[in-house]
Design a protein around this nucleic acid. Structure first.
Lengths: 207, 207
DNA sequence: ACCTGAACACCGTTCAAGT
DNA sequence: ACCTGAACACCGTTCAAGT
């Protein structure tokens, strides 16, 4: 009766990798990274923890899949090629927005990246942009990776303060600060790195 | 008979906070951060895990004490005030050397820092150096924190690759790569940030 | 193909009680 | 002041077995 892919009432529901990642993202958004355990993901899916190991070999690769979904909306460089300064800033900002969309997003992505389970986000776009502006390749590489690490590190820091504020607020019974204030030195740090690369490139132009 | 502070043969040995941190550093150096558990530290000291909670309220503060010891040798700015470029580079390099002295040093320090349990290392020295060179305060702040985060992030990355190489090597039975190669873009990244700050300061000099 | 059931080998932490 | 003993409430992971 039921067409393939639809669940009849009799057959038990079956989960796909996508469903598992969805459940994990839901827990991440509402509970945060410390509560993102295999057992809670299983609960959310109405399944036993061991079932998850049919979909993923271990927790690390599951979290890497979650990281990739968080980064999926990271904007690519627009066409036609924008100026270095504007383009690099836009890429950095877009990356930060992705990370801020989920609680502890930067920490999660950083650790997946550190374990070599995902590619450095936005780095390819930055590299291409830099090379399009005839930046020396070695400098382009350094500038891209420095910028990406700055965004990750800074956003991690911002989100960690947000978590601390959260526990402090909940201890007093106060409402949690919902939105992330633009805060502070994000723009300054990005500008520093972008400008530094530009200036060094001028001092040592490509033949 | 025994003078105060010495252990007679009859009285059981007693541990100080310092002893606990020493034991933790030993485990960190030989086993790495994932094996730095309360139970293993207790074993190392010949004590039950619960005993550690007399010295420290929880694991996080114990690890923060370990972080502070790792950073204790971080060099301060020499006298007389060196040029910005050389001074900032020296501070960054000295910080990196401290972090590299213990396995997973950068990760440990980063997480203590993220939880707000230690002060950002080397930041005060960098700030003072920048201000001594009449850099605008806002720029000096951004430059200092960007540089510190770069060193932490980069060293974290280097050490993580070292750990991955370690497991790969031990899986094959090969000897582990003992020393850390200077590797790669550390100098480049530091130069980029230091130069960027210098260049921006020239463009917007302090009155 | 997808999941259960049951177990294994761990964690951090608390707390009354000992000396 | 410093530590033991025993417990509590968790973890990630494995693996035979079910459907």
């Amino acid at each position: 009766m039921a067409p393939p892919g639809a669940n009849s009432a009799a057959a038990p529901a079956r989960r796909s990798k996508t469903d598992v990642v969805d459940a994990a993202l839901g827990i991440l958004a509402t509970q945060g990274l410390p509560d993102l355990t295999m057992r809670r993901i299983a609960d959310e899916l109405g399944v036993r923890p061991s079932a998850l190991y049919w979909h993923f070999p271990n927790k690390q690769t599951l979290l890497a899949a979650v990281s990739e979904r968080i980064l999926a909306l990271s904007g690519s460089a627009p066409d036609p090629t924008p100026p270095w300064r504007e383009g690099a800033t836009a890429i950095a900002t877009s990356l930060q927005r992705c990370l801020l969309r989920y609680r502890d997003g930067a920490e999660l992505v950083s650790s997946s990246l550190a374990m070599g389970l995902i590619q450095p986000p936005a780095q390819r776009q930055l590299l291409e942009l830099a090379l399009a502006h005839r930046m020396p390749p070695a400098l382009a590489r350094v500038a891209s990776s420095t910028l990406v690490h700055f965004v990750l590190g800074h956003t991690f820091h911002v989100q960690q303060r947000l978590e601390l504020a959260r526990v402090a607020a909940s201890a007093v019974g106060a409402p949690v600060p919902a939105a992330t204030a633009p805060e502070d030195d994000f723009e300054g740090g990005v500008a520093l790195i972008v400008h530094g690369a530009e200036s060094l490139a001028r001092a040592d132009p490509r033949p």
